[in-house]
Computed example of a mutant assay.
Amino acid sequence: MVLPWRRRRDKTVSAVELTIPTYFRCPISLELMKDPVTLSTGITYDRDSIEKWTGTGNNKSHGVERIPTPRIPISPPEVIDICAGMVAATRRGDAKKCVELVVKVMILAKESERNKRCIVENGIGSVLADTFEYFTRFAIDIHENLLKEILSTLAWAPQLTQQGISKLKSTNSLHCMALFLKDEDLLTRRNTISVLKELVCADRDYVDRLAQIDGIQEILFQILEVPICPNATQACLVVIHHMMVFQKATGVQIISKFIQMGLIPLILELLVDGNRSVCDKALAVLDRTCSTKEGREIMYENALTIPLLVKKIRHVSDAATDLSISIMYKLFSGEDGSYNGVIEAVKLGAFQKLLVVLQVGCGRRTKEKITQLFKMMNMCRDKIDCFESYVGSKYLKAPN
């Protein structure tokens, strides 16, 4: 038995439904349009309906041409809903749903920079880090697709909370990323090294954990030796530099191991035609290798060393200038300093370049190193024929 008041309610609802204007309904599905788009014909359709219709072959040949229209930007609540769905799916161990949500994030991010910013600013990075760590507890090949999709997203959405970073420096996460650095797919390797770069820059403790992985130095060296792209090369150089500088227990041993692999000649080759960012980071790594006698000796033996250092002064960036001067200072000073290197630098025009650096302005430490380099050059004047023609006699005083 249906009560009278219930009947009245049902009739009211039906009446409301009948009052929806027909032009609010999609001509294809006859349903209320959720995302209306207007074609060049002037007719408006629901986006999903017209996309399905054109996707079945109904295109220009039938008089209809698809015209791209902007989608509604994603909002913070929508991103939060996606994050909540990801957390729930991870807790259930539902890898399929996680892949679906990660792909959805990627699609939304590609639509606009505004979408990308909204996604990054609303916590997707830390949620993905948690999902990544969870699924690395199982056999990696089972969830390989999901793990790679997450790294692909983290490569452009690197903002992580401390909790997110801690998830990605777990033993399982680190070993998974080390494995992906050797993957046959170049895109996977690029994404992985990009994520590692962000992590070592965000947390120095991450460097120690990374350095403990067997074979990690060989893996990083391989990425430099067989380049993927400039961005991957830059990221790899940053990771290597952080390992040399911040690895607590065996920093010197790490430098020595990289040197024995052949890192110095490889870095010098990168400096020959590398872009600005690559040169800056390559010189930073080279500067660290000069902190060991082993590194300096190998640099003395390489014919590219002095010409490249002189060339990079005032040629790439302020950072490259400071680093080149620092490397020259380390090479020429100390008990193992090379007078031959000083002489070669003078002949290549180092004196004039250093003088310009002083005139333009530089930091206190760089200025001190330049002063010491001038003294070394002055001491070598008797060993260079026509010394004045290289540097100009008015700039030098007789050695004491």
Rank of each mutant, 00 (worst) to 15 (best):
S194I: 08
K375F: 10
F138Q: 10
E297G: 00
K197M: 15
E294K: 10
V16H: 02
E65K: 13
L358A: 05
I325S: 01
L271Y: 04
L266W: 04
F138K: 11
T188K: 04
K11E: 06
A109L: 05
L187V: 13
V195F: 12
H62R: 12
K312T: 09
I119T: 12
Y395K: 05
L373H: 04
E269H: 07
T153K: 03
L323D: 04
R364H: 11
K383W: 04
Q260H: 13
S256N: 14
C279M: 09
C83F: 03
Q212R: 15
H143V: 01
I80S: 13
K104P: 01
Q217D: 12
A89L: 07
L283K: 04
T90V: 05
L210K: 02
C176Q: 06
G123H: 11
V103R: 14
I50C: 05
M376T: 02
V37I: 11
E133S: 14
S112N: 09
E65T: 10
Q372K: 14
R9D: 03
R8T: 06
I20W: 00
Q162W: 08
W156C: 02
Q260I: 02
I223G: 10
N172V: 10
K293V: 13
F132L: 09
L108R: 12
I313S: 06
L146A: 01
L30R: 09
R137Q: 07
I28D: 01
G55H: 09
V102L: 06
V13Y: 04
T250V: 12
I313K: 05
R276H: 08
F24T: 00
D273L: 08
S14L: 09
T153Y: 04
F132T: 03
T56D: 14
G392C: 08
E368N: 14
G337V: 01
M86F: 05
R114L: 14
F258C: 08
R6W: 01
I67W: 06
G215T: 11
I213G: 05
E344N: 07
K397V: 10
L396Q: 11
E113G: 14
T250N: 08
I142C: 01
S29A: 02
